[in-house]
Every structure is written in C-alpha cells, then in structure tokens.
C-alpha cells in the first residue's frame, strides 16, 4: 500500500472517530435535550489536559520508575521509553486517563448546568459557555504546572510498544473507532427510551414539561454530565492521537466545528450526525492535505484559511436553506410503537 494514502486514510478515520464522539455528545445535549452547549471545547480540552497530566505524572509511577521532570526532554524520553517497553503501563495509563477525563469533564458539565438555572435570556448561557472555554485555554496556557503552559507536553501513543509506526497508528485508529462505535450504540440506546422522550419534551416546551411533572433542573444536569463526560473521552483520544497536549488547540472554533457537524447532519438524528462528522472530517483533512501539497509546489500557506471560510459558509447555507439538516429527526423508538400498531 502506498504510504501517503495509508496515512491519509488512518488520519481521516481517526479524526472521524473523535469528531463522531464529540458531535454525538452535542447531539445528545442540543439535538435531544435542547441545551445549547456553546462551550463544547472546554470539556474536550479538559479531557486532553487530563490525558496530559496523567501521562506525564502517573505513567512513571505505574511503571515503577522514579519520575523525572515531566516537561524536560529527559522526562519526555522517559515516557517514550516506558511506552516502548511496557505495554501494561502504557495501556493502563491510557485507561486511567479515559476514566478520569470522563469523571472530571462530567463534573465540570454539572457545574456549568447550575448557572443555567439563573439565566433568563436564552443566549446568555451560550455566551458564558463560549467564554468559559476560551478562559480555560488562557489559564492553562499561562499556568505551566498543568501541561507546561503554551509549550504543551508530549505524550506518546499507548501502542508505541508495537514498534512499527504504521502499526501503532493503525492500532490506535482501531481503538478510536471501537470507542466511537461504543458511544454510538450507547447513545442510540439511551435516547430511544423514556429518557429520550424526557429530553425532547424539555427541548420542545420547558413550561409544558415542568407542568407535566418533569424536574428540568435535574434533567439538565444529567444531560450536561453525560455530554461533557463523552466530550472528555474525545479529548483524551485526541491528545494521544496528536501525541501532544497543546492548550492552543482548543480555540472556540473547535466548538463551532462540532455544531456544524450536528446541524449539517441532522439535529436529533444520530446517524445524520455521523454523516455530518464525516463531511466535516473530509473538509478538515482535505484542506489540510491540499494546503500542504500546494505549499510544496509553491502555493501560499494561507490556503489553510479557506477551510474556515468553507465551514462558515456551509453553516450559513444549512441554516438558511435546510434547517433540519440532511437526515430528518425520527420518533423515539420504543416498544410502544409495536403495541399501538398491533391494536
């Protein structure tokens, strides 16, 4: 297999998996629950930062080696050495990072659901969340003890011990896709249930839902915990994929990208959202590869900017001409429909 095509395919599928988890989680929050999480990137970033902290501090301890300064070149070399020789430590660290990220991001999500109760203007929460994400980035990039500030921290792939670079990225890609598939199945089961109905009722009419006995403060908290925990998972996967935790990766446009995937594919349709994630991945990777190719032939680096212009125009086009997205919403699929049909 020719090398560039292989690596392009692996990178496409890896990103697709990560984007899928992100967009499915936003779909849970917004598509089903009507909670406009404009701070998606904050929870995604939290996952990545947790991965950075766990990989740089905890892994030597798990491997039973005295840790070196995690941000020094020696510390980095130590981590590489561990992942090369100790599959157990590498994978266990990764697993702990996943769990911890889900936990911390989930708790953070709950925290954010709280002020929402006080807010009357709908867009206000949107702005606060948007800003929260940006502030998290500013603080983490300015405060070195977490992930070495804006220098970031290198974290080696948990499959490094496989040796061959292609095999490592392939194995990691498979892992991402398996987790993404798991998330897809989980969310599908979660929303095709009375809970899914509850979410949609909150989305469609909050006043009617409360007067029909729904404790929306609780539901809002639940859905933001779940959605944020999933975004945290995606953050860990991304951090290990890129091998480098860098606060400046998590700019507000990342949030916007996820929104594009959801709105494009179809609000409250999980399959549609996967389609949206695939289209977004294609644009993201496609322009990246194109820009690099063109640059080697003397094109201008600014072609990268086209990506944002395309994504922005795409979003405007959907909002103006196809508000429901590509795939339409479906009824909540429970056994109730079999019963009513039979009679």
């Amino acid at each position: 297999m020719p090398d560039p095509i292989f690596s392009a395919a692996v990178s496409f599928l890896s990103y697709f998996g990560i984007f899928s988890i992100l967009s499915l989680s936003l779909n849970l929050e917004y598509g089903f629950g009507g909670q406009p999480n404009f701070g998606k990137v904050a929870f995604y970033a939290t996952g990545a930062f947790v991965a950075g902290v766990v990989a740089s501090r905890l892994m030597p301890l798990i491997a039973g080696i005295a840790p070196l300064d995690p941000f020094s070149p020696e510390g980095t070399m130590q981590r590489v050495a561990i992942t090369q020789s100790n599959p157990y430590a590498a994978l266990l660290t990764f697993l702990i990072a996943l769990l911890l990220a889900a936990l911390i991001s989930g708790a953070f999500g709950y925290l954010v659901s709280y002020p929402a109760i006080r807010i009357r203007e709908e867009w206000f929460l949107a702005m606060v969340l948007l800003v929260t994400g940006e502030i998290l980035r500013v603080v983490v990039r300015s405060y070195p003890p977490i992930v070495n500030g804006y220098n970031g921290v290198l974290i080696p792939n948990p499959f490094r011990w496989l040796g061959d670079a292609d095999q490592v990225s392939l194995a990691y890609m498979v892992l991402i896709l398996v987790i993404a598939l798991g998330v897809y199945i989980y969310i599908n089961k979660l929303v095709n249930s009375p809970f899914g109905r509850l979410l949609k009722s909150m989305r469609d009419d909050q006043i009617a839902a409360t007067s029909l006995g729904k404790d929306l403060v609780k539901v809002r908290g639940q859905v933001l915990i779940l959605g944020s925990a999933l975004a945290g998972l995606a953050g860990v996967l991304y951090a290990y994929y890129s091998g480098y935790v860098n606060p400046d990766d998590f700019i507000p446009i990342r949030t916007f990208d996820v929104w594009v995937m959801v709105v494009l594919g179809g609000i409250a349709n999980n399959r549609g959202v996967l389609l949206g994630a695939a289209i977004m991945t294609a644009i993201d990777r496609g322009t990246q590869i194109l820009a690099i190719q063109l640059q080697t032939f003397g094109g201008i680096a600014e072609l990268n900017y086209l990506r944002y212009i395309i994504v922005g125009i795409l979003m405007l086009a959907i909002l103006m001409f196809r508000q429901k997205g590509i795939l339409p919403e479906k009824p909540v699929k429970t056994p109730a429909y079999e019963v009513v049909k039979v009679e």
């Binding site: 509850l198 949609k200 469609d204 009617a208 409250a268």
Partner: peptide, 19 residues
C-alpha cells in the same frame, strides 16, 4: 393549557407517553 402546548417535535404517541 388554554393554547395547547404540545411537544411539537414529537409524535402524538410520544406526547402521550411523556407525562
């Protein structure tokens, strides 16, 4: 409600199954 406040994005059956 005086003016029906249905869950307009949901089916008739799903509306009944919420309460």
């Amino acid at each position: 409600f005086q003016d029906p406040r249905l869950f307009l994005g949901m089916t008739v059956l799903d509306n009944l199954l919420v309460p």
